[in-house]
Design a protein around this nucleic acid. Structure first.
Lengths: 199, 199
DNA sequence: CTTGTTATCGGAGCGTCGCTCCGCAACAAT
DNA sequence: ATTGTTGCGGAGCGACGCTCCGATAACAAG
């Protein structure tokens, strides 16, 4: 029998048998579309409807909302993570690299409605979204931070985890308030992190 | 008749007639207790149960949740607002005053579970909580900021509204994450606001 | 004391949402 | 054809925000 399949157009078939499980990518595309339209807190029903599947299917592929969100934005988070070392290599100064990276991160968060707000570890450790962002970006942020701090000759005043979460928090609600300038606040915050004055 | 009440200890009576509407203060006390126990996002049913009244009563006195929250924390917000001028007068430097006031504000936000997170103007302008905090505290923060900026001889880099909201955002989630140090982040942010370097 | 008026009270009820769970259908193996 | 396996869909449950109306109680007039 082998795999002499002739009629199956896509047949991802990675598991042992069964139906060609409905393309996860289709779900991700639908979710992305809904996230753009209604924010990352959009009802699961709406995502299911957009994808033309039942809610069960969504939950089967992504048992928790954070997992879905992570999957949707994985590429962009990876791009952001990869941009770190690149900026550090290409920029004139480590501080410039840090500020450029931070601007990238801020732009990413601000353009995704509600993403920054969903970044919290509310569910007592079981928050995959928070964990993913932290695991992936803290090291990157840490490298940039370390380099920048060293280049300006100040002792490190805070760890990368706090800096990253602080930036994330500063981006919350930026889309709903024209007067609120998250980018400016974050850059000022970075100034503080790199400033000589401790108190 | 006057107010020769002899049996009514508190009798607020502000409306014309009817029953001595159930003391709002009792509701506020109950709400405060629940907020401490379950955060400011506690279900209205829970607050009503704690107060021993029906939900209708809660909604009659405080049609929206922000109004209830404002009422519960009004005293502390006022105290915070009043502390501004006082600190400015008593502190050695305007910067010290600003930093002390900010520490006060941060402590206030961090100790009230979820208050910082509820500070957003999500409901398109109709958010009384956001409006109250902004109206009451932005001027205070502005004065301190102005004095501090002037004393260190830097041009103002951002307005008080953004500073206040930034601080509020930095306090989000502080209670759920032992590694997250909101106070430190905010003070670094203030350093940035007062720093010479603009870019 | 009785009756009428009026404001307040309490919670049933409706719509929404997150999440679970079970019957069903489609395919593979026999 | 029959049986086994696996993915699929959505009904259903509990929680919640918020509304709305019948019940209730205080007071004034008679």
């Amino acid at each position: 029998m082998a795999d002499a399949g002739s009629e199956q157009p896509r047949a991802t078939r990675s598991t042992k048998v069964g139906r060609p499980r409905r393309s996860e990518q289709a779900l991700l595309d639908a979710a992305a579309a809904v996230f753009v339209r209604s924010g990352v807190d959009a009802p699961v029903r709406e995502i299911a409807a957009e994808a033309g599947v039942g809610m069960g299917t969504i939950y089967r592929h992504f048992p928790t909302r954070p997992e879905l969100v992570v999957a949707v934005y994985r590429h962009q988070v990876e791009a952001c993570a990869n941009a770190g070392p690149r900026l550090l290599a290409e920029s004139a100064t480590p501080e410039a690299a840090l500020r450029a990276w931070v601007a990238l991160f801020v732009d990413f968060l601000v353009t995704k409605h509600g993403l920054a707000g969903a970044l919290h570890g509310d569910s007592a450790g079981s928050d995959a979204l928070h964990a993913y962002f932290v695991d992936r970006l803290v090291p990157v942020c840490g490298s940039l931070l370390e380099a920048a701090v060293e280049s300006v000759g100040t002792p490190p005043q805070i760890d990368a985890y706090n800096v990253l979460k602080g930036i994330g928090n500063l981006c919350i609600g930026a889309t709903h308030d024209a007067r609120y300038d998250a980018e400016a606040l974050v850059q000022l915050f970075i100034s503080g992190v790199l400033a000589r004055r401790v108190r």
